[in-house]
Nucleic acid binder design. Sequence first.
DNA 1: TTAGGGTTAG
Length: 522
Amino acid sequence: MKPNLNEHVLDTLSKSNHLNHLKQLQAYLTTLGHAHTHFYAFKLIRFCTLTLSNPTYARLIFDHIPSLNTHLFTAMITAYAAHPATHPSALSLFRHMLRSQPPRPNHFIFPHALKTCPESCAAESLHAQIVKSGFHEYPVVQTALVDSYSKVSGGLGNAKKVFDEMSDRSVVSFTAMVSGFARVGDVESAVRVFGEMLDRDVPSWNALIAGCTQNGAFTQGIELFRRMVFECNRPNGVTVVCALSACGHMGMLQLGRWIHGYVYKNGLAFDSFVLNALVDMYGKCGSLGKARKVFEMNPEKGLTSWNSMINCFALHGQSDSAIAIFEQMVEGGGGVRPDEVTFVGLLNACTHGGLVEKGYWYFEMMVQEYGIEPQIEHYGCLIDLLGRAGRFDEAMDVVKGMSMEPDEVVWGSLLNGCKVHGRTDLAEFAAKKLIEIDPHNGGYRIMLANVYGELGKWDEVRNVWRTLKQQKSYKVPGCSWIEVDDQVHQFYSLDKSNPKTEDLYIVLESLVGFRNEVMGEP
DNA sequence: TTAGGGTTAG
């Protein structure tokens, strides 16, 4: 028996992911005179959106439908809203719909249109339209407004206003507000709004934990993660990614390992985001072998996967491995193209390995072969590289040729190089530049004083210290930490409070001695 | 058909 048309169409669409199948189906529907009926046109547009990610073909179908309804406009705007590149098309189609008569927009279409607002005024204009159409008291529309406003620059005030005026706030609207605050770095307000919630689900926990980790509040992020688990909310891939990022930054290998176990037990090991975050966590915690193992296991290595692995090796000075991964990426990475992050990692690897020529070569490759405009990070790496190698003329040429103002990393790298190679004249220049950029940073003034000391300019030394005392601008001491047997040990610069300080310094000195021997330095 | 959450950089 021949299956009916409905079943045939739906069956084909559910089993295929190919444009050709869609075209065959379209041809078949055309012969039956059904290609432009609302029901089938809608199904075909949804297929283009959800399965093919092809808004262009969706538009082709859309443009051949003789009489459009609101439902089809919504489908087309959703297709455009799925890709940032087609957001302008979504808005212009929506404006076209508003100008033409009928179909009129309903409350379903506004949330989709709001997703495509690039800036505050676009959201405001849609907001006006929402009020005009009488949909401003629909909770879903209000939530979409809160979300849209909080994503455009300078829109948080409006987001807050809409949120405060809502009479029926859901867990979704609260979550939109939490991430709105987090997005502008206001973790405190995000925590406060989260505290006001009566119900919390996994995405709302995620919004707050992500807000913490994205703003550098790693300890708080970890605490929330533990609380979330304790309160029996099951972390998902998103939660795990944020928590792993915090573990990496804090060097919390034990917790990182626990999360790895959780990932396996809960079927999250197929999520590429999760695997990348694991690679990053292991790398930052010093377990390069584990990082590599997880990386190798990932069957869908994307750009971030490669970048994370390169960064791991770069971070630990294993420049050869970093370069090998890069070459593997370019040659057999399944068409993955390096981006600016890749080159930051690669240049760092060269810096840590003292590979000046190679670093230069990769810098050129980035610009010439990949057409990537160097960012300040790349200049920082290059100058670090040249400075360490004592090639100051070239370093200064690079500084002069930069298309942006050199920042503290650039001058700091140069200053470091000067210290190693005894170029006190240039060091003085770099230190002064650093003070110009951040006059209240006491650390820079101390560096300058040290440079003057080496030059024997004792009056200048006294002057610098006088300013320093007047400003009371001592630098916040540098801090690092390591986890051993479930315990985190913190060390501040010049801090001798650890009971094993003496032993630690003996080991440290022997390591420095060993390094100098290897590097041929005195 | 409708609203919220994600990794990598000196």
